[in-house]
C-alpha cells in the first residue's frame, strides 16, 4: 500500500514525459492549430471558373475522386514558391483532381499569374470575396487541403508545401 503511494510520482512522471515526447516528436507547432475541419466533410461551396463564369463547380462535383484543394493568389509570394510543385503532383498522380481557389484577386491579375507561371489546376475557382476560404477556415495563404473520395478533409497544410512535405505527408495519403 505504502509503496504504491511512493511509486505514484514516478508513474505520473513517466506518463507526462511520454505524452510530451510524442507531442514534440510529432512536430506539432502550437502556433499553427490543427484544423477544426480535419476528418470532417468538405464545407459546401459553389464557385465559378476563372475563365468562364458559366462554368461552375460545387461540393458534389468533387465526390468520388481524391481532390487537392489549394488556395492561392497572385499577390501571395509564398504561393509562387510552391506553384511548380503542383505540376509535379499532376504529372506523378494524374488521377488526383487539382482544384485551385483564387483568393481575393482581380481576375486579370490571376489570369496573368497563371499565364506566366503556368496553370497546374484542373479547375480554377474564383473566391473573390474570400467566403469559400472562410468556410474552409483558411488562416493565411497558401493553404492546401486533401479531400478523399468520401468528401472528407484528410489533410491540411498551412503555408507553402515543399518537396519534403509532398513526399512524406501528402503522397502517403494518395
Amino acid at each position: 500500500m505504502n509503496r504504491i503511494f511512493i511509486l505514484t510520482p514516478l508513474i505520473t512522471l513517466l506518463i507526462i514525459c511520454l505524452f510530451s515526447l510524442v507531442y514534440l516528436l510529432s512536430g506539432k507547432d502550437p502556433s499553427k492549430p490543427p484544423s477544426a475541419l480535419l476528418n470532417k466533410d468538405v464545407p459546401i461551396f459553389e464557385s465559378s471558373s476563372l475563365y468562364n463564369a458559366k462554368d461552375k463547380i460545387k461540393t458534389k462535383d468533387i465526390k468520388n475522386k481524391k481532390t487537392l484543394i489549394n488556395f492561392f493568389a497572385s499577390w501571395c509570394s509564398p504561393c509562387k514558391i510552391e506553384h511548380p510543385l503542383f505540376f509535379e503532383i499532376r504529372k506523378k498522380h494524374p488521377e488526383l483532381y487539382l482544384l485551385g481557389f483564387n483568393h481575393k484577386d482581380p481576375t486579370s491579375d490571376a489570369k496573368k499569374y497563371l499565364e506566366d507561371d503556368g496553370n497546374p489546376y484542373h479547375f480554377v475557382g474564383v473566391d473573390s470575396d474570400g467566403l469559400i476560404a472562410l468556410e474552409f477556415g483558411v488562416f493565411g495563404l497558401p493553404e492546401t487541403y486533401l479531400i478523399n473520395e468520401d468528401g472528407m478533409i484528410i489533410y491540411k497544410y498551412m503555408g507553402p508545401i515543399t518537396k519534403h512535405i509532398l513526399e512524406n505527408e501528402i503522397e502517403p495519403l494518395l
Partner: peptide, 26 residues
Amino acid sequence: AADASRGIFILLIFFIITGFGFLVFL
C-alpha cells in the same frame, strides 16, 4: 523560438532530475 531538439533535451533533463529524485525517495 520553438525548437523540437531543445524541447527534447529539456524533457530529458526533467526526466533525469525528477526520476532520480523520486527514485532515491523510493
